[in-house]
Simulated scan of single mutants.
Amino acid sequence: MSHTRALRNRFVDAEGSLGERLRTARWERFRRLFPGIEGMTVVDLGGTADMWLRAPLRARHVHLINLEPHPADLPDWITAENADVTDPEVAAKLGSYDLVFSNSTIEHVGGYSQRRRFVAAVEQLAPLHWIQTPYRYFPVEPHFVAPGFQFLPLAARARLVRHWPLTHSRPGSAEEGMAAVINIELLTRTEMRHLFPHSTLLSERVLGVTKSLTAVRAERAPEPAAASAD
């Protein structure tokens, strides 16, 4: 393992890393809000089988929707398909579930109109939801583990991502660099409230600073969210 990959793992991926501790705490919060998860059918928009296989809980059934390929060998409680849920025809064919789950996906769907279609699918697919996204004003951009990266001009981000040592997969060309950054649009609290006006908006904090936001419609009422400026 390279030195830079090891450094990224220390912060994001490895057992005991900050990222792993935050994921564990997130699952605990999720379980409190959805105590009946073991008996629920879940559609995961943008999720992976690996995430559910590593999770400290299990739904009755999980259906994954992702543009990326899925593993061929899945357990019988997980099914998957390659599709774009922002396409209304795709969403209409998916049927209904108990819960829509989505982790760090809405910021990737590509612009406000696509986010509105994503939200329409969420509302159509299930009565309950958990939609998490990184917070725009957290000091470190989470995809690239780069301080202030999201506030740079697009051209600067496309150049920097080709050299930044903590990037997960470093682009090899200018074109790949632009493709890596152009469709990541981190959301603010105001935008999430606008998109999910009837949901509770929860904040995940690190050292008192909001790191991510989650729009929730749950079995149990979430704890009241603290008032905060954008």
Score class of each variant (00 low, 15 high):
79 T>A: 05
99 L>Y: 08
135 Y>M: 04
147 P>L: 01
73 D>P: 14
80 A>N: 03
153 P>V: 03
119 V>C: 07
136 R>N: 04
140 V>H: 01
134 P>F: 01
109 V>Q: 01
110 G>F: 07
143 H>C: 07
123 E>N: 15
147 P>Q: 01
109 V>M: 04
101 F>A: 02
62 V>L: 11
129 H>Q: 11
140 V>S: 03
151 F>I: 10
73 D>L: 13
69 P>M: 04
115 R>S: 11
140 V>A: 02
117 R>M: 12
97 Y>H: 14
66 N>L: 08
156 A>C: 15
159 R>Q: 14
65 I>V: 12
111 G>K: 05
87 D>S: 00
123 E>G: 13
67 L>E: 02
105 T>Y: 08
131 I>F: 06
155 A>C: 14
62 V>D: 06
70 H>L: 05
73 D>Y: 11
98 D>G: 06
95 G>M: 00
92 A>P: 03
61 H>K: 15
155 A>N: 13
102 S>M: 03
144 F>A: 09
75 P>I: 12
153 P>N: 02
73 D>A: 13
137 Y>N: 14
71 P>K: 10
141 E>H: 07
124 Q>M: 13
65 I>C: 02
107 E>K: 07
154 L>C: 09
88 P>D: 10
152 L>G: 02
148 G>T: 12
135 Y>K: 01
149 F>N: 09
130 W>K: 06
158 A>T: 08
84 D>I: 00
63 H>A: 06
97 Y>T: 09
152 L>M: 09
84 D>Y: 03
70 H>E: 04
129 H>P: 04
111 G>V: 03
145 V>I: 15
150 Q>I: 11
96 S>H: 15
75 P>T: 11
66 N>Y: 01
88 P>L: 04
145 V>S: 14
88 P>A: 00
117 R>D: 12
85 V>Y: 08
121 A>F: 01
90 V>Q: 02
136 R>T: 11
116 R>E: 14
116 R>H: 13
